[in-house]
Amino acid sequence: MPPSTRTPGSILRSQGPLLDVRNLSVTFPGHLAVRDISFHIDHGETLALVGESGCGKSATSFALMRLLPRGTAVAGEVNFNGIDLFRTDARALRNIRGKRIGLILQEPMTSLNPVRTIGDQIAEGLVRHEKLTWTQARTRTAELLDLVRIPDAARRYDDYPHNMSGGMRQRVMIAMAVSCNPQLVIADEPTTALDVTLQSEVLELLDSLRRQLQMALLLITHDLGVVAQWADRVAVMYAGRIVEQAAAHDLFERPVHPYSQGLMRATLRLDDGTHYSNARLSEIPGSVASAAGEQGCAFAPRCSQATEACYHAPPALVPFRDRLVACRVAVEPSEEPFRAVVGR
């Protein structure tokens, strides 16, 4: 997939970030899932949060919505358009969820209620947040189903989730997420359960709605092809930390962090926009290690460029040229030659 050529969202950029996350950490019982991450999302833009399964992407999304299970410890600050989501009361938070922040989960069959019609599930949010009557909400729901390109929308109101295909169910989830014209939609692996053709259709729909409704999008994915085509900016996660942040085009043109470079080498790409490159794909050696007792860079055991210093303390995410990078080797080049330490 070639680097994105889409125009970045620019709505209300002068007002500052819509979402500003600072030093977010999430700890499940016995497991530190997210470690001290910071990022922001501007009005109208798409930020992709990308990384391997288990790196903390979904834990981040649920933390932002305060939907983590009991017993989970969360630290840091999450400011949404002037509101501190971690310190606002439960009632105010319920009014933000669904109305100002929408959420799309990766498996609609387990997210939708199997014994309620899809129409009632969408209309419920309109009745609660928009104060519509059920009759008004039914009319608006039909409009939303049409907006997400479900054929014969009015008739599908009374369908149950099992009456619909996977692609149609995901469109229902999108309709629910955008029903109250939110400022931000969080899409957590929205195409994982879909085939390639439907993935493209759903992502094109999301991007169209982003522009039409003037909303921002946090797109959580492990698919670099998705990132290349649909993201304005990218935050790459590894073992609970963000290791690189850059504009999507810049990341694909010049990945700086060794992990980002490894992801690119393991991804099938187009060499001229029409033909796949003949370059051999290479895997990242080793496997993601547990973060328990982490002393240095979590990627060091898999990194061919690591030096002894990489094992002493986690590197900070710091400005480097046109991006942010957490890598001593990249931002503080040494005269000492790189030493392969894979398998150390």
Score class of each variant (00 low, 15 high):
M1E: 08
T5V: 15
T5M: 08
R6T: 15
I11F: 14
P17R: 07
V21S: 01
N23V: 04
L24G: 01
F28E: 08
G30P: 04
L32C: 09
V34T: 12
S38A: 03
H40Q: 15
T46R: 03
L47W: 09
A48N: 11
E52I: 03
G54A: 01
C55A: 15
C55F: 08
T60V: 12
F62T: 05
R70N: 06
G71I: 14
T72P: 02
T72A: 00
A75N: 07
V78K: 11
G82V: 05
G82S: 06
I83G: 00
L85Q: 02
L85F: 02
R91A: 14
A92V: 08
A92H: 14
R94C: 12
R100M: 07
I104G: 02
L105H: 06
T117M: 10
I118Y: 08
E124H: 09
G125H: 07
L126E: 12
R128Q: 13
L132A: 01
T133C: 05
W134Y: 13
T135P: 01
V148F: 07
D152I: 02
R155F: 08
R155S: 15
Y157W: 10
D159K: 06
Y160L: 09
M168E: 08
R169C: 15
Q170A: 01
V172L: 09
V178Y: 00
N181L: 10
D188T: 05
D188S: 14
T197N: 04
Q199S: 07
S200R: 15
R210M: 04
M215S: 13
L219G: 06
D223P: 13
G225Y: 01
W230V: 14
M237C: 08
Y238C: 11
E244F: 07
Q245V: 10
A246Q: 03
D250Y: 04
E253K: 08
V256P: 04
S260I: 01
D271N: 07
D271I: 03
D272P: 12
S277G: 14
A279S: 13
R280A: 15
L281M: 09
S290P: 06
S290A: 13
A300Y: 02
P301L: 02
C303K: 09
Q305H: 14
Y311F: 14
Y311S: 12
A313N: 10
P315R: 10
A316P: 06
L324P: 04
V325D: 06
C327L: 05
C327R: 08
A330D: 13
V331H: 15
A340Q: 11
R344H: 11
R344Y: 02
R344S: 09
